[in-house]
Amino acid sequence: MSTATTTAPTPGGTRRPGARARTAPNRPLLGLLGIAAFLLLWEATPRLGVVPERYFPPVSEVLLTLAQRALTAPFWEAVGHTLYGWALGLAIAFVAAVLLGFALGAAPRVRAFTTSTVDFLRPIPSVALIPLAVLMYGTDIRSTLLLVIYACFWLIYIQVLYGVADVDPVAEQTARSYGLGRLARIRYVVWPTTLPYLMTGLRLAAAVGLILSITAQLIIGSPGIGQQITTAQQGNAIALVYAWIIATGILGVVINIGVRALERRVLRWHTSVRGEADT
C-alpha cells in the first residue's frame, strides 16, 4: 500500500527544514544495518529451531529458490502477465478518470447530480465484482482488467475532482480577464493545479492496481503471479510460496520507486509552489 496519503495539505508550516536536523543519523548505514539484521533474523530463527523449517524456511533457501526460478521463462511470463494486467488496467482507469474528472469538474451543476452515485459506488470493494467477472470473462485477462480498472478509477477520479476544486479563483479570474478561452484556461490554470493531485491519485492507484491484478489471478486463476502462488501452495512448496511473496514485494518496491520518480519528474517545475499536495 501506499504511504502517507493525506490527500490534503497539512495546515500551516508543514515543512520546517532543520527542525529535526540535529537528530539525523547516518541513514543509509542504519538502513543497511536494519536489512542485515532482518535477513540474519530470518536465517537464524528456522536454523536454530525457533520455528519449524517446514513453515518458515531460512532466507537463504527462499532466495535460492527465487534465483532458480528467475532463470526460467515461466517466471518471467507470470511476471509479464501480472504487469500487463496492471499497466493496461491502470492506463484505462487513468484516461477515463482524467477525462471524466475534468469534464465534470468543469461543470459543477452537472457534477452535483453524480455525487450521490459516486459516493455509493466508490466504497464498494472491487472484489465484489469477482463472481461477475468470472461469469462474464472466465480466466480471460478482461476479468483482471475489470477489477483493476474499477479499483483504480475511483482513486484517480476523486483526486482529479479535488485538484479541479483547488484552482485558485484569482488565477482563474486573471486568466479570464486576459481573455484566455476555456481550453487555454484548462491548459494553463486548471491542469497545472490539478497535476499534483493527479500524481497522488496515480501513486495510490498504482499500488492498489498491483494488489487487484494479483488478487484476480489468485482467486479467478488467470495466468500470472497469483496463479503461480496458488499452484505452489497446492503443491505444498513452501519455499516457493515465500519466494513468490518476495518477488511481489520487489515488484511493489520497483513500482513505488518508479511512480515516485515519475511524480518528481512531472512536478519538478512546481514542487516549490504546491509541494504540500504530496504529503
Binding site: M1, L210, I214, I225, G226, T230, V241, G249, G252
Partner: peptide, 16 residues
C-alpha cells in the same frame, strides 16, 4: 519492502 508486498499473496501462505 514489507509494505510493498501486495497483502493478498499472504492468503495462500497463511493457509499453509
Amino acid at each position: 519492502f514489507l509494505r510493498a508486498i501486495p497483502p493478498p499473496v499472504l492468503v495462500p501462505l497463511m493457509i499453509m
